[in-house]
């Protein structure tokens, strides 16, 4: 049986992209292998780890739990699309670097897409809220402590453009 193929148009990071995909092509595979946007990572393919998270119309979703063909006509933002068009880092990216919020960097794109969307709706989270905001993403390297710190730091950059460092998180 020859597989049913679809010509699809996706708007990815503001750019109209086209691909020819079979029905079952996962959005994660389409982004990575058809469009060459390998910043989105695949860690479990059953929706638990969060490494593949991208924003669909601004909302973070698991790209391993969507078919590319279902994403037709939607606005997709991947980690490659977070930075400004001039190439300067998004506040979350900057904060991750400043706060050592990543080690191997494999889970990082999923965290960045989640946090960037979160801070749009919750510009001034508490520590506890910052921790909760990243509660659906797995990281095996960092122990999350510096990721929490990076969420708060990014919020501060976005709100005030200040360079003041974020205080250490208090024990819960």
């Amino acid at each position: 049986m020859t597989e049913q193929m679809h010509e699809i148009e996706l708007r990815v990071n503001g750019v109209l992209r086209t691909a020819t995909v079979p029905s079952r092509r996962l959005l994660s595979d389409c982004l990575r292998h058809d469009l060459g946007l390998t910043g989105t990572h695949v860690g479990c393919e059953h929706g638990v780890c969060g490494a593949c998270t991208v924003q669909i119309d601004g909302r973070p979703m698991r790209s391993c739990l969507m078919f590319a063909v279902s994403a037709r006509g939607h606005e997709i933002t991947t980690v490659e699309g977070l930075a400004d068009p001039d190439g300067s880092m998004h506040a979350v990216q900057q904060a991750f670097r400043e706060c050592h919020g990543l080690q191997c960097g494999f889970c990082t794109p999923g965290f960045l897409t989640v946090i960037a969307a979160y801070l749009r709706d919750h510009p001034d989270p508490t520590e506890a809220e910052a921790r909760e905001a990243i509660g659906g993403n797995l990281c095996r390297c960092t122990g999350y402590q510096n990721i929490v710190k990076a969420v708060l730091r990014a919020a501060r950059i976005l709100n005030e453009g200040t360079d003041a460092p974020v205080a250490e998180e208090a024990p819960r």
């Binding site: 029905s23 079952r24 996962l26 698991r62 739990l65 969507m66 078919f67 279902s70």
Partner: peptide
């Protein structure tokens, strides 16, 4: 029927089910 797919697609990815047709209601 494929709606959100958050339960269905993991099952498909693990090949625990193989429906011949998916009707995407998105």
């Amino acid at each position: 029927v494929l709606a959100g797919g958050q339960s269905l697609i993991p099952i498909l990815n693990m090949r625990l089910a193989a429906p011949g047709h998916l009707v995407d209601i998105n």
